[in-house]
Design a protein around this nucleic acid. Structure first.
Length: 244
DNA sequence: TCCCAGGGGCCGA
DNA sequence: TCGGCCCATGGG
């Protein structure tokens, strides 16, 4: 069983996930689809500057936080008509913190969003075709490797593999990782084992999140898991120690 | 009441 | 370089 095989098993089970889950797109009721523009050359929906910005701050809001709480924060920003980089840039950090409070760590996240927003505006990175450099993102306070790669993959279509807690958990249980690997070790492993291209990386990460929520939680629910037969967690070696 | 959720910064060893 | 701690809300 190869990493690529896992991808196709998950895709068969769950289908395309359609990431990034834009709040403004999903809650537009067919009107005012601010996240997307129509008519891009490859027949797939192209991101607007607004959609790109929503992905960027969503990547910060979801740090160590459930997506339902992120949506509450995004709903507040929409309600206050603040989901706009210029408005956020001009907003006092304390007021932004109140708006994003439901996502937790609100003081830190308000500071991170302000810094990221100014970076995106100063570099003119929100219009199509102007992609920020990964190292520049990593140099921003509050942006680590997972957040940088999420932004670059989902907002800019760069073929980077996003490594998160779920990736480590699932592929450690499957036996591809031992849990001690650095972020770069894991991302390089996936990139080397998979066909190139941002579309597959986009879908795979989304499927990993889906599978982790459905079955491979911290306390796993292995009933009905399609990876059960190939998972070391469920088939420990004789005498082997099962994960806590 | 406790555990968990799509991290990252800081600090001491 | 690495482990431990801190940040914080909301749902199960």
């Amino acid at each position: 069983m190869k990493i690529e095989d896992i991808y196709y098993l998950l895709l068969d089970k769950y289908g395309p996930q359609g990431w990034w889950p834009l709040y403004t797109l999903r809650n537009s009721n067919g009107r005012n689809k601010k996240g997307y523009i129509s008519g891009s050359a490859d027949k797939t929906p192209g991101l607007s500057a607004a959609g790109r910005y929503e992905i960027a701050i969503g990547a910060v809001l979801t740090q160590n936080t459930s997506w339902t709480n992120v949506e509450k924060a995004l709903a507040n920003l929409v309600e206050l008509n603040l989901l706009d980089p210029v408005k956020i840039s001009n907003l006092e950090q304390d007021k932004l913190a109140v708006a994003v409070k439901p996502s937790g760590y609100f003081n830190q996240k308000a500071k991170k969003i302000k810094i990221l927003t100014d970076f995106l505006l100063d570099g003119n990175y929100l219009p199509h075709g102007n992609t920020p450099d990964r190292d520049d993102l990593l140099n921003l306070w509050g942006i680590g490797e997972e957040t940088a790669d999420s932004i670059l993959l989902y907002a800019y279509n760069l073929p980077l593999f996003v490594v998160d807690t779920y990736t480590r958990r699932i592929f450690s249980r499957l036996g591809f990782l031992d849990g001690s690997e650095k972020y770069s070790d894991i991302s390089e492993l996936f990139v080397s084992e998979l066909p190139p291209g941002s579309i597959l990386f986009n879908e795979f990460h989304a499927l990993i999140v889906k599978h982790a929520k459905e079955h491979c939680r911290k306390k796993p629910d292995c009933s009905g898991c399609i990876l059960k037969s190939v998972c070391k967690y469920n088939n420990p070696f004789p005498g082997g120690k099962q994960e806590e």
